[in-house]
Amino acid sequence: MSIVVTGATGQLGRLTVEALLRRGVAASEIIATGRDTTRIKELADRGVLVRPADFADPESLAAAFAGAERLLLVSASFPVDERAANHRRAIDAALTAGVSLIAYTSMTRADSAHTVLAGTHRATEEYLREREAPAVALRNSWYLENYTAQLPSALQHGAFLGAAGDGRVSAASRADYAEAAAVVLTTEGHTGAVYELGGDQAFTLAELAATASAVTGASLGYTDLPGDMFAEALAGAGVPAELARILADADLGLSRGELFTDSGDLRRLIGRPTTTLAEALAAAAR
């Protein structure tokens, strides 16, 4: 079985390749793609097929997907206004190549959420249905790494910042999401499924601060801001303006429950409990 993983130069794609290898997929049956394949030379050295692919270049997609049976379509990054078109080109190329399953990394509650990111995922899911593609939606909630990456700043300033109010987020580790993707790509019965994926233990950002305090021994709080002020704070910390607006918008979605799921789908797919917030923070603190 030949499996293509897009975005293998990124963190989720790379982790999925590693998860496929652990599940016994031969390196020669994995096609890792990305725009800059020099970043995954180590995978090529291990026998993984490495091919260049650019979502904006249909010819590169056709060459990258040639001979593939299954595809993990890792959602494109920025700019956000080009995401849906990039995804459509990838879907068209996969169907032309005869791929029998497209696993798409979507977002929790993509069909009903009101964030900008959810809108791009909803458009992609709709296109998969329009093309009658054999597909499965992997609706990932937020990454725990989105919060562990904030730990140094929180320790410096004494608080986590956000615009999430009392909303609960079902964050899980990238490794957990990658393992779920590998399971879907290597087992049967997933075509047409929509998996709402998230960690077993949802938390508020105030609970994030409390857990980080317990793990590190520091006294950390959570400061809730209006969305526009949070975006300004992110931009002031060096986050690019567009990304700052997207992250603030996502926090507002979090406040509305749009990043929460209690489906248990992730735990069932990977066959074990998901990584906890405390575990992730402890690893980051080390």
Rank of each mutant, 00 (worst) to 15 (best):
A118K: 04
G119I: 02
H121I: 02
R122E: 04
R122P: 04
R122C: 02
A123Q: 14
A123D: 06
A123P: 03
E125W: 10
E125Q: 09
E126Y: 09
Y127S: 00
L128C: 01
E130F: 12
E130Y: 10
E130G: 00
R131K: 04
R131E: 02
E132M: 02
E132V: 05
P134N: 12
V136H: 03
A137G: 05
A137E: 11
L138E: 02
L138Q: 02
R139D: 15
R139V: 10
L144G: 06
E145P: 03
N146D: 15
N146W: 15
Y147P: 00
Y147G: 03
Y147L: 07
Y147Q: 14
T148G: 09
T148R: 14
A149V: 15
A149S: 14
Q150I: 03
Q150C: 06
L151N: 06
P152V: 10
P152K: 02
S153Y: 11
S153L: 15
S153I: 09
A154L: 04
A154Q: 06
H157I: 07
H157T: 13
G158S: 12
G158I: 07
A159E: 13
F160Q: 11
F160S: 14
F160V: 14
L161I: 03
L161M: 10
G162D: 10
G162L: 12
A163F: 14
A163P: 08
A163W: 08
A164R: 06
A164L: 06
G165V: 12
G165K: 06
D166F: 06
G167N: 15
R168K: 11
R168C: 05
V169R: 12
V169G: 14
S170F: 11
A171R: 09
A171M: 06
A171H: 06
A172V: 11
A172W: 01
A172N: 05
A172F: 01
S173V: 08
S173D: 04
R174E: 07
R174L: 13
A175W: 01
A175N: 08
A175P: 05
D176M: 09
Y177D: 14
A178N: 07
E179H: 07
E179N: 02
E179A: 12
A180E: 09
A180Y: 03
A180T: 00
A182C: 12
V183P: 04
V183D: 08
V184P: 14
V184F: 05
L185V: 00
T186P: 10
T186F: 01
T186W: 00
T187R: 15
T187G: 01
G189P: 01
H190F: 00
H190E: 03
T191W: 01
T191C: 02
T191D: 00
T191L: 05
G192I: 00
A193P: 02
A193F: 05
V194H: 10
V194I: 13
V194P: 01
Y195M: 12
Y195P: 10
E196K: 04
E196P: 04
G198L: 10
G198V: 03
